[in-house]
Amino acid sequence: MTIRPPSLPRLSAFTRRRTGLILAGLAVMAISGAANGRQQATPISMDIGDEPGRVATAEQIVEDGPFARQLVFFRSAEPPGTIVIHTSERFLYVVQGNNRALRYGIGVGREGFQWSGLVRVSRKAEWPDWTPPPEMIARQPYLPRFMAGGPGNPMGARALYLGSTVYRIHGTNQPETIGHAVSSGCFRLANGDVIDLFERIAVGAKVIIRHGASI
């Protein structure tokens, strides 16, 4: 089954109650290494926090519109299989060679704007576990301190860990946030799309993260 992001089959009760979570959804990962990277203010955020446990089926993909997975023209000197992430555009490209790339729509969290440069995929995980950071526990004290991987986990269906950093490309249980700056997380794809990406990318693949120039 595929759905368009704006029409989730079921919005949880949690969505209705998510007041005051904008800052609370601080970090799926703590921030480190920011001092070395270029900083950029997070663009206008979607007014939404993490919704732990919100269930999205594994099959959800962005089906239509600009954030749907598609082949695009993309000039690059990088070898096929390289991932290029343009945070300001909200796109992730997988270089295919011959001036083309497979493009995925992504959501970028505050943490995703902290670092730019070249890393490699150091590890891949299916249905990764989730440990909400202490800042988030402070705002949402009812959260479990650890949540085993699964459909309701904000980390979604797959995760690609980036080098020895705390950054990762992961799925989401909130596919409607794709294309937006969301308040937490690094680089999130709809679950169906992150599964597709996971199959294409090997451990060791190059990942280039770019933010666009800042004044």
Binding site: P144, R145, F146, A148, P151, G152
Partner: peptide, 27 residues
């Protein structure tokens, strides 16, 4: 209390150990 959650029975032992480790940030 250290608190953790799981959905599948196969995760239960693992999550129990995780819950114990979460006493750093107890409920």
């Amino acid at each position: 209390w250290g608190v953790a959650s799981y959905r599948e029975e196969k995760d239960r032992r693992r999550v129990e150990a995780q819950a114990r480790a979460q006493c750093r940030l107890p409920y």
